[in-house]
């Protein structure tokens, strides 16, 4: 296990992705703190192109795009993190405990996984957005978490099924440990690398899913996220053609692309380390 950390630190892909991700996190956390109110509309400065005062110009409402962007990065990361952490926990719980106990417990957890697997995200959000007033980031994170875990639970299940046949599981049982103890101390540590990868992927896909939902207007329309910026940029332009105000939609688009690329490069780096066949170091 210790070797794995050393290898990760030596992996160029992993470190590059991490560096990009950390700089985006800094932008998303320190930025809003320095830049002031992202919703402030200066109606005398509507739709201005980038300038030294407004690094990325202003929107059709006279809001500063850069300030909005920093806030959007932070909020999008929060949604991703909530969905990533919760989704991973659900996946581990459903994928590990049921199959470990076996029999009926395994059947129930498999059924739950299969049911969640066919839950369609976009129709679900359209229904939720029409019913729930005031969707906030936490709620969106929760819903994304609830729909994102099944594939991970499935692959964790298959790994647990092989790991539980190892003799050290029997040995632990013969040391008087109960099932939960054994899953936590004997089975899961051997899957830690995989679980970390699940977390990274779930976080990335949750950010993307939230942006997509925001962009079609079924997510939060009050809190700035990357998708929210794209939504307003395509709907509320005062100029004749929306592409004339390119400084409004290009930056969030680029940031979204860079953020997801960073996350998937981190994943690729981890994959190389955890999957010895791909290892080149």
């Amino acid at each position: 296990m210790i070797d794995v950390w050393e290898l990760l630190l030596r992996s160029r892909k992993f470190m590059f992705g991490l560096a990009v991700l950390i700089s985006l996190i800094l932008l998303g956390t320190v930025g809003p703190w320095l830049l002031g109110d992202p919703y402030y509309m200066n109606l005398s400065l509507i739709g201005r192109p980038p300038s030294p005062e407004h690094l990325l110009g202003t929107t059709s409402f006279g809001e500063d795009v850069f300030t909005q962007l920093c806030n959007a990065i932070g909020n999008s990361l929060v949604v991703g993190l909530i969905a990533g952490v919760l989704g991973t926990l659900i996946a581990v719980f459903v994928g590990a405990v049921g199959p470990y106990i076996g029999g009926m417990a395994d059947r129930i957890s498999s059924l739950a996984t299969n049911l969640a697997l066919v839950l369609p995200l976009i129709p679900l959000f359209i229904i939720i957005a029409s019913v729930v007033r005031g969707l906030n980031l936490v709620l969106i994170g929760l819903i994304l978490a609830a729909t994102s875990w099944p594939w991970a639970a499935r692959s964790i299940r298959s790994q647990v099924l092989t790991l539980k046949e190892r003799e050290y599981v029997n040995l632990a049982r013969m040391s008087g440990q109960n099932s939960v103890d054994i899953v936590v101390t004997e089975v899961l540590p051997n899957m830690l690398a995989y679980i970390m990868m699940v977390f990274v992927i779930l976080t990335g896909t949750a950010i993307l899913a939230e942006s997509a939902l925001s962009m079609i207007g079924v997510s939060t329309t009050r809190t700035i996220t990357l998708g929210y910026m794209l939504y307003w940029a395509q709907h509320e332009t005062t100029v004749p053609f929306w592409w004339n105000i390119w400084w409004w939609f290009i930056p969030p688009g680029i940031v979204l692309t860079v953020l997801l690329t960073a996350i998937f490069v981190i994943h690729a780096g981890m994959d190389e380390i955890f999957n010895p066949r791909l290892r080149e170091l």
Binding site: Y168, L171, N190
Partner: peptide, 20 residues
């Protein structure tokens, strides 16, 4: 029970958790 009955298994490499 396990205080009185214990076992040694066939594959020593599988009996020790490689994580610890």
């Amino acid at each position: 029970y396990y205080r009185q009955v214990q076992a040694v298994f066939q594959d020593p490499y599988s009996a020790f958790n490689p994580f610890y």
